[in-house]
Deep mutational scan, measured.
Amino acid sequence: MQNSHSGVNQLGGVFVNGRPLPDSTRQKIVELAHSGARPCDISRILQVSNGCVSKILGRYYETGSIRPRAIGGSKPRVATPEVVSKIAQYKRECPSIFAWEIRDRLLSEGVCTNDNIPSVSSINRVLRNLASEKQQMGADGMYDKLRMLNGQTGSWGTRPGWYPGTSVPGQPTQDGCQQQEGGGENTNSISSNGEDSDEAQMRLQLKRKLQRNRTSFTQEQIEALEKEFERTHYPDVFARERLAAKIDLPEARIQVWFSNRRAKWRREEKLRNQRRQASNTPSHIPISSSFSTSVYQPIPQPTTPVSSFTSGSMLGRTDTALTNTYSALPPMPSFTMANNLPMQPPVPSQTSSYSCMLPTSPSVNGRSYDTYTPPHMQTHMNSQPMGTSGTTSTGLISPGVSVPVQVPGSEPDMSQYWPRLQ
């Protein structure tokens, strides 16, 4: 039975679970980093996980050691009161100082060594604690504590007292930064006198190289990059290397530039699409467009005044059976039934097929058609009795279509119309 579990990581490298990497692998990681390889490249070359490479390099940059820390136990506290007071002093002298600059000053002034120097995250935590204590304490208590930490007896009751030896409130920041720059020169002199001055200088240079600022491109470089971006948004590694040799930039910087440029292009394309949609959409909808001609068919113009009344309900007709019959029939052209047409008796099958359309009241044959006459024609229609054979009435077949029909004066039988409509 094995005491430890061995495995293979996602890159194909072998590791022992819970145990640190061998010293030979750690040394190779540092050597590759000094030669300029990126952590992701080191991870692929040595088949070590990216997190492990970053952790080893980060500890090497901070402490200069590649040895693993002790497994188990607690780390001794490195942010001692003396170190905290120095950090507060540096922050007062130059409020814009960075944590890694404070760390360098602690090393250069001999406050800490490589073994007990606090990390950048520890210094940031100390600065946050100082800021929170400043908010919790009152103004007087804060000034007393700062005077105690600074070891001075001057008056701290006013704002300019934060910067000793100065009279203009805006000047101390520059003086403090100048003092810090002077301390940086002392850093070089002190570290050069040490035993491991060369190694420390190499480590600091490598650290500065990794902690780079934003790349500033010249106009020629920007023009070359934009020209390549117009050709393709995704250049391959050969195109990037050719462009890197042409404009004297690292291939990694060119790759990052193209990634950022593609993101910018997507944002601009989104804005262009929004403007295009806004320009195509009308600002207001016309009133006429809300009524579609496919839904509402136009009603033909009436030929006679009587045809303006298109349904039985508008003429005072309360018989719903006839109203439904007229509205359900398709529109037909106007025609006239003459008196000489043969009077065919209704076929029983045809009569039964339209039995649902006729009223059940037996008085329908005896009703006159003056009910369908509009009010303004009552006088004219009353002067001509319906009993004469020459009287013409208008029957409504569908809305908007008038059918003048000659009705025999002897017997106005409704059943004569249905064979004609089939």
Score class of each variant (00 low, 15 high):
G110T: 11
D104L: 07
S24E: 12
E101C: 08
Q27M: 08
G18Q: 03
R19V: 08
Y60I: 00
S74R: 00
S74I: 00
S4I: 09
R92C: 09
L127W: 04
P95R: 06
C40P: 04
W100H: 13
A37E: 07
M148L: 08
S54Q: 07
W100T: 06
S35I: 08
R128H: 05
Q89R: 08
R92L: 13
V53C: 06
R69N: 13
G36F: 04
I66N: 05
V120N: 09
D144N: 13
P68S: 05
D140P: 13
L32C: 10
S119G: 00
L32D: 02
S96W: 10
R26A: 02
T113D: 09
I102H: 05
N3K: 07
S43E: 01
V8W: 04
G12N: 05
V16S: 12
P39A: 15
L106F: 05
K55L: 01
Q89W: 14
I87Y: 01
I123R: 04
G110H: 14
I97N: 07
M137C: 07
T25E: 08
S122P: 01
C112W: 06
R125K: 00
R59S: 06
E101R: 13
V8P: 04
Q10F: 06
S122I: 00
S35H: 15
R38H: 02
H34T: 08
S85Y: 13
I66Y: 08
Q47F: 11
A99D: 01
I87Q: 03
K145P: 08
D140I: 09
P95N: 14
I87A: 15
R69F: 10
Q47G: 05
V84S: 08
R38G: 05
I102C: 03
T80R: 11
V126Q: 05
K134H: 08
L130E: 15
A88G: 15
S119R: 04
K75P: 04
Y143Q: 12
L32E: 03
I87N: 00
L127S: 14
R38T: 05
R105E: 15
C112Y: 04
T80Y: 06
P68C: 01
V84D: 01
P81L: 14
A33H: 00
E101H: 13
E62K: 10
E101Y: 15
I97R: 06
N3C: 14
L127C: 13
V53L: 00
P76R: 05
R147C: 10
Q136F: 08
S85V: 12
Y61C: 15
R128S: 08
A99E: 02
